[in-house]
Amino acid sequence: MTYIVDKDNVDVRLDRFLRKNCINNSMSEIYSSIRKGYVKINSKKKKENYRLKLEDEIYISNLDFKLVKNKEISNNIDKNLIFYEDSDLLIIDKPKGIAIHKGTDNDKGLAEILNVDFANRLDKKTSGLVIAAKNKKTLREITKLIRENKIIKKYKVKCISNNKYKVGDSFVIENKLEETDKKVIVSNKGKISKTKYNVLDIKDNIITLEAILYTGRKHQIRVQLANVGLSIIGDDKYGNYKKEDELELECYYLEFNGKVFEKK
């Protein structure tokens, strides 16, 4: 059979494209077919690491090829969740208490409810802006930006004040964080984690901080602040709070590809 490459599969490696769409074939069968010329691009043999180009003609024989269709976004999506939308992208304003993906404590997450692929994630108790892609090409592009730390993410955080800071102060926490079975800990065995914190407000012994991420480790803000005596209000994992308490942590700002998304 013949397949013409569309925009969703541009820059995908040939072997990965076949692995996704030839689910009844082993990788050894796929590699063998590529080497023996049962798979050709524009009538020519290519190596398995060839990256597909728009409108490449892929000839496939000797493999059970069935094109896996892209997800169709649910028509029942709550419009209040959509912060921004265009032909390729969705910025979702995630409420507190809803997980991004299904897991042990929930049968469905936002990804399953909306039928979209998220490029990044927020913890179940964290609210705010999160990026979803409408197609695989956009998903790959956003994932690459995240991997290269080219997406600016800012959070608003509320903690009980430790009386060390005043409004207008700024400080940077840079340490190493390690994932263990139960939680993330500060450890020399971990990965470098860096965040800048700006003091926005102090009222009734509650300090409001802006957190600007330089790295994106799991639970980074939560662990760093708890480690300096500023555990986030409602954090039952790294602070003295109950599981049902609301976590005062929100991603309010995203910036990438020349676009700014900000909750006022």
Results as ranks from 00 to 15, higher is better:
M1E: 15
N9W: 05
D11Y: 06
R13T: 02
L14M: 02
R16G: 03
R16N: 11
K20S: 05
N24T: 00
N25V: 00
N25H: 01
S26R: 00
S26P: 10
S43G: 11
E48M: 13
E48N: 14
L52F: 01
K53P: 11
L54V: 04
I58D: 01
I58R: 03
S61F: 12
N62W: 05
N62I: 03
D64N: 14
I77W: 02
K79R: 15
L89Q: 00
K102A: 15
D105W: 07
N106H: 11
A111Y: 02
I113S: 01
V116G: 03
A119Y: 05
N120K: 05
D123A: 04
K124E: 13
S127Y: 03
R140E: 12
R140M: 15
E141A: 14
L145D: 13
I146H: 07
R147V: 09
K153T: 09
K154I: 02
I160E: 06
S161D: 11
D169A: 05
D169F: 07
K176G: 09
E178F: 07
D181C: 12
N188R: 14
K191C: 13
K191V: 12
I192R: 15
K194L: 13
N198S: 13
I206A: 07
L209V: 08
L213V: 00
T215C: 10
H219S: 10
H219T: 10
R222Q: 03
R222L: 01
Q224E: 15
N227S: 14
G229C: 04
S231R: 10
S231L: 08
I233C: 12
D235I: 07
E244Y: 10
D245F: 09
E246G: 11
L249C: 11
Y253I: 04
L254P: 01
G258D: 13
K259L: 06
V260S: 11
